[in-house]
């Protein structure tokens, strides 16, 4: 149990914008994600991805992730970079599990090669199962859920 809450992740869902307040969740055919400055892959060509969890850097107030989205039906670049800017707050989860870091998201920035837009829905990244961010891929060759 303590292992599950050691790192509090930011949760991201993928959606198709249907010009309503209730966008449609989509699954990407495949996705690769790794942190900027870190060679280790968090998701390695993972198929049918609808939601992902990313660990924010608990030593700095910002970090970035490289997204390699599915091959577009054109010559567009596959790579996108998303930057997260946040405040960190050390939190004693319990006497047994010790400390973790909660985050309050301040801003994000991103490239728009394969990403159309991103919405910040929940700024508080705590030890809950809430989704924080929606990504709307551009011209996604995806399967609707």
């Amino acid at each position: 149990m303590c292992e599950d809450i050691a790192t509090v992740p930011v949760r991201i869902g993928f959606f198709e914008d249907n010009n309503t307040d209730d966008p449609i969740a989509v699954s990407l055919d495949s996705l690769t994600v790794y942190g900027l400055g870190n060679d280790s892959l968090i998701y390695n060509n993972r198929p049918n991805v609808a939601q992902i969890e990313l660990p924010l850097n608990s030593q700095q107030d910002s970090c970035a992730f490289i997204f390699i989205l599915p091959q577009a039906p054109s010559e567009f670049l596959q790579l996108d970079t998303i930057w997260f800017y946040y405040d960190r707050k050390a939190t004693l989860i319990s006497m047994e599990c010790g400390f973790s870091t909660f985050y309050e998201l301040n801003d994000i920035s991103y490239s728009k090669n394969r990403i159309d837009s991103i919405s910040l829905d929940n700024l508080n990244v705590r030890n809950t199962l809430d989704e924080h961010i929606k990504i709307f891929p551009d011209n996604t060759p995806a399967d609707n859920e």
Binding site: A6, N38, L56, Q59, A90
Partner: peptide
């Protein structure tokens, strides 16, 4: 106050 605490982060490194 708190001291000597460790925050685990398997991806970016512990602090």
């Amino acid at each position: 106050e708190a001291s000597n605490f460790l925050i685990r982060n398997d991806y970016w490194g512990d602090s």
